[in-house]
Nucleic acid binder design. Structure first.
Lengths: 341, 341
DNA sequence: TTGGATATTCAAAGCGCTTTGAGAAAAGAT
DNA sequence: ATCTTTTCTCAAAGCGCTTTGAATATCCAA
């Protein structure tokens, strides 16, 4: 059943029926109720594509997910999506997830900008020297970035966590406890967030006059085995680090595993500080959480980024919006003074 | 630039341009090349909604993700999506992810069926007594189920892992090693896959004449703390289980943590067998994998389910397709004979 | 040279909705 | 009772594409 048929059935014009359905004021209450009832009774649902074509708006947001060599979706991503997706759904928007090879990403954005299938996109995980932002600005497709570039972040909207500060702070905390040798288990440092975290860590070390040791700095995919392998390597060193800074709970779990296997106790022999995205499936909570951490909800970030994009779409002329969230410091049971201090 | 403008610019009719672009034979090579070149040069991208309206097909698949009270997306889901999403993208389909509250799920399916916005849907995580399948059959919306119901699975397409067999086998393996007391850390048992796993476990115990002990059977969200808490509880029992069967690597990591904390060694004092979905961010691999497991790639399942749905959409009259995958048994280092055997 | 077959191109009618501009009906003012 | 207003309803023109059926060009054999 389409609009015309419904109109015929009601002996009304399509115009009136359309208006009644869409809540326009120039239709009497009596007629509106008749229309609404008939629509309900006949299971009438307006054709999505016809509506979109006529209105010129897609009511769709796209998340383009470039698959790297790993053919994986970052697990942090699923919580981000949960937050964003719920926001879209509430606002009557659909979310399309486009999984593409990295090489096709640009073409996808180009077609999105031209074919009107989406109203805007979210840019995930900006890399150092990322070209996507310039491209999107060029194309005029509304977007919000989760994260930001290393510089020039004034002329687009973004939401980011203060990664530099978080890691600087975490490092200082460990230094204050007396740790002198602190390892870093970081994500890929071509990602801006990881680069900033490294810089925060280096800044704190430098301020404390502690030399940098590349042997205890790791940078790769933030997964469980990453932490395991890094700790395996580090713990066998002559003068092993007494503290480890980790970029995610996932490698932290691997680190704990390696520490246990070495017959050591985390939070006693080796201190751990973790950046905690509050992944729903890896809660670090309780009265005394397992890990001392810097905490910032990636789920909430998803929600907020989605809101920012929707408001940008609905008020295209509003300025750029920037939010820099500070991670919350949470004392857990994974940190202590270094053993012989 | 739209089709008409492009046609005007080429001094051709929209008909011819459309045909040239879509590869119809009744247009000369010369003209086709002219059209293609002009489209390229002018960055012409056909309007998505206009195309869909005219063609009557959406070229979109929806995954409806009901959020339970937990407001989380199951992490297993992200790997499934990666596989499915890539398949859609290759076939020129879009994937929309609709995150909804459980209560709205039915309304969403109804509108999808009527408004033509999607060509088909994937049903995730069927529950015992699930009503979605009957609804979709009723609505005539093409769908494929990842998993299946407890009975009546002949009249719809599905892909499932033989969960019963996998857990029966895992239990038997532990029994053969000499374990007499085997705990089960399972997912929510209103989910069909979890119910089947439990049944396989119970069957093996029953065949071996071992009494069932509800005190060592757990059923909840498959996350890291689940395994931790279950093991905490179990290890303090007078006659603690010597082996644990776990439904996912996530709780298995929690279990390892609890075992370590108790001063015991996994794979020696306590044996673990895990169902391994081969989550990309929690690889259980290597020469000797950490966990003895039953392995079945959820990523591959996503790929295959997507293929099944696409072929169903393109050949609506083909029959139902059923695939039951057997999990692969992988011997790791988390199992041994029980301590004093 | 011509008739018929074949290869190309086109005008026009959808697809199902929204929206503009007008007209008819009802209500209020004089 | 007449003239404005205000309410309500409608016909028709899009939105940008595809597709049908017809028309024109081109080709070949007779």
């Amino acid at each position: 059943m389409n609009l015309k048929q419904l109109a015929d059935h009601l002996k009304l014009s399509p115009t009136t029926v359309s208006r009644a359905l869409n809540g326009y004021p120039e239709v009497s209450e009596k007629t509106r109720n008749r229309v609404l009832a008939a629509a309900e009774a006949n299971h009438y649902h307006p054709s999505h594509h016809a509506t979109r074509l006529a209105k010129g708006k897609a009511h769709v947001i796209a998340h383009v997910v470039p698959l790297s060599v790993h053919t994986m979706i970052n697990p942090h991503f699923s919580d981000f999506i949960a937050g964003a997706g719920l926001t879209y759904a509430k606002a009557g928007y659909d979310m399309i997830l486009r999984v593409v090879m990295e090489s096709e990403e640009e073409a996808v954005y180009r077609s999105f900008a031209k074919d009107g299938r989406v109203d805007g996109v979210i840019v995930h995980g900006p890399r150092v020297g990322d070209t996507r932002i310039a491209l999107l600005q060029d194309l005029g497709l509304p977007f919000v970035v989760h994260g930001r570039t290393m510089a020039d972040d004034a002329d687009y909207s973004w939401l980011d966590v203060n990664n530099f500060r978080a890691f600087e702070r975490a490092t200082n905390f460990l230094l204050d406890l007396g740790h002198q040798k602190i390892a870093l288990v970081n994500g890929f440092e071509d990602m801006v967030f990881a680069a900033r975290r490294r810089d925060g860590y280096l800044k704190a070390l430098k301020d404390a006059g502690i030399p940098i040791d590349p042997e205890i700095m790791f940078s790769s995919e933030m997964v469980e085995p990453q932490g395991y392998q890094a700790l395996k390597k580090v713990l066998k060193q002559a003068k092993a680090p007494t503290a480890i800074l980790l970029s995610s709970i996932l490698p932290a779990l691997g680190a704990v595993r390696a520490i246990h296997e070495a017959g050591l106790v985390p939070g006693k022999d080796v201190s751990l500080v973790v950046f905690d995205d509050q992944l729903s499936f890896l809660q670090n909570s309780g009265d005394i959480p397992m890990f001392t951490s810097l905490r910032s909800s990636i789920h909430d970030a998803g929600t907020r980024v989605a809101e920012m994009l929707l408001s940008k779409i609905n008020q295209p002329d509003s300025g750029f919006c920037h939010e820099l969230w500070e991670a919350e410091f949470v004392l857990g049971s994974s940190t202590a003074r270094p053993p012989q201090a």
